[in-house]
Design a protein around this nucleic acid. Structure first.
Lengths: 228, 228
DNA sequence: GCATTACCTTGACTTATGTCAAAAATAGCT
DNA sequence: AGCTATTTTTGACATAAGTCAAGGTAATGC
């Protein structure tokens, strides 16, 4: 119980709220527990609230008619998701599924809209979160439309290295198949490109652990490089 | 002067605001006038406010290292743009350029943040707008990653027909080159696909005017069809 | 009205990436 | 550990869409 309040108190969405206000949030939130690989919602579902990840991991994704999947986001502890229909009405824009056993909080729409109307800083926090997501989407569209798969991969690897702050060692937190889906490609293509990048001594792959051997080369590739 | 207040009073962002509040907005807004084809901002620029289109048209776009352009949005009268850095800080996520001679309002960040803190409905309006944009981005990512160009085009044409509510006649409001950029392709490819769709009696093209001859076929193509 | 520019179309060619199939490696389970 | 299921890799092949280049059409300005 204490742990939950810890996590939500550190979430950017609740940044700057008082203990009293956090208590209000906790009181309207409903706990939901999911096993790995379970659907949280589908894009056809109606929505009357949004979710926050307490523990675990959730992917937000679209699927084509032919069955190809594109991951839009992967969210971990502290991240809210499914808020779009709270403010714009209508259905969810995509599907959500757990990647791990997960504990989620469900925040019902009406109670949250009341809260946000009372607390301007909550509204500003939510505006900041949605703005960050718009920013991420512009990067994703840019990557999909203007860059080839090797550049997207290089970009992801250097991003991960920065995030994990573990020097030139990176460890994937998702399977390579899921990474392919996140990068907008398929496992076969990703596998081939990892092999090529290894052959050119840009990286060294051992399962999910990847060592970046030539950070500079990767960054160039991420911007505009070709892989021969 | 009266006309400007008319336009901003009808913008979804200012939905439900009183005359007094609209007057406040007008007072903090700064008029800017641009010729066709002028840069409003670049993604490297710092931001201390956002814009609203009064008249004209603005494209928001990214450019690859090789010079290929991807349009993210096209905004007309009443639409705000460039709000992302107002709430998330940092630089603009993309570039903005006028497609027509345009009259814009620039809303300085500090004054707007004050207003939004005072008026919860303004905050909720902005949340609704950002949510709609996130929704549009999920569609754009889906289109780029999971659909081929013919499907994207068919999707755009049926969308336009619905929006223009002019039966099966559609008229492009942008050049075919810009349309190619919006769909994430190049003019040559778009031209070929328009020719193919004409040959299959799906559409009939005369300059920027397109007649949809087989709405059902186009809708099927938009979902999962192949064009032979 | 004509010239200049921008826009659009068509053709021949290249290439990145997807498809299908099968083998290899890894992870998970009893 | 040993077996199964999943994930990953590799190969041969197909194809959508990009590149380069040239010609045609439409629009704009003097």
């Amino acid at each position: 119980m204490k742990k939950i309040l810890d996590i939500i108190s550190q979430a950017p969405l609740f940044n700057g709220l008082s203990q009293e206000q956090l208590g209000q949030i906790r009181r309207i939130a409903i706990d939901e527990f999911y096993d790995k690989g379970k659907t949280v919602f589908l894009e056809s579902n109606d929505c009357n609230g949004f979710y926050i990840v307490v523990t675990g991991k959730v992917k937000i994704y679209k699927v084509s008619f032919e069955g190809k999947e594109q991951i839009l986001h992967i969210y971990g502890p502290g991240n809210p998701f499914g808020e779009v229909p709270v403010f714009s009405g209508r259905k969810f824009p995509a599907n959500a599924e757990t990647l791990l056993k997960s504990h989620l909080l469900f925040i019902p729409r009406p109670a949250f809209v009341d809260l946000i109307s009372e607390h301007p800083s909550l509204a500003l926090n939510m505006l900041a979160i949605l703005s960050m997501r718009l920013r991420q989407f512009t990067v994703q569209v840019e990557n999909l439309s203007l860059k080839e798969v090797p550049a997207r991969l290089a970009s992801y690897l250097t991003y991960l290295a920065d995030e994990q702050a573990t020097g030139d060692f990176v460890s994937l937190t998702i399977s390579k198949g899921q990474l392919a889906s996140l990068l907008g490609t398929i496992p076969e293509t990703l596998s081939r490109i990892l092999a090529k990048m290894s052959k050119q001594d840009l990286i060294q792959v051992e399962g999910r652990n990847i060592k970046l051997l030539n950070r500079n080369g990767l960054e160039k590739l991420a911007q505009h490089g070709k892989l021969q």
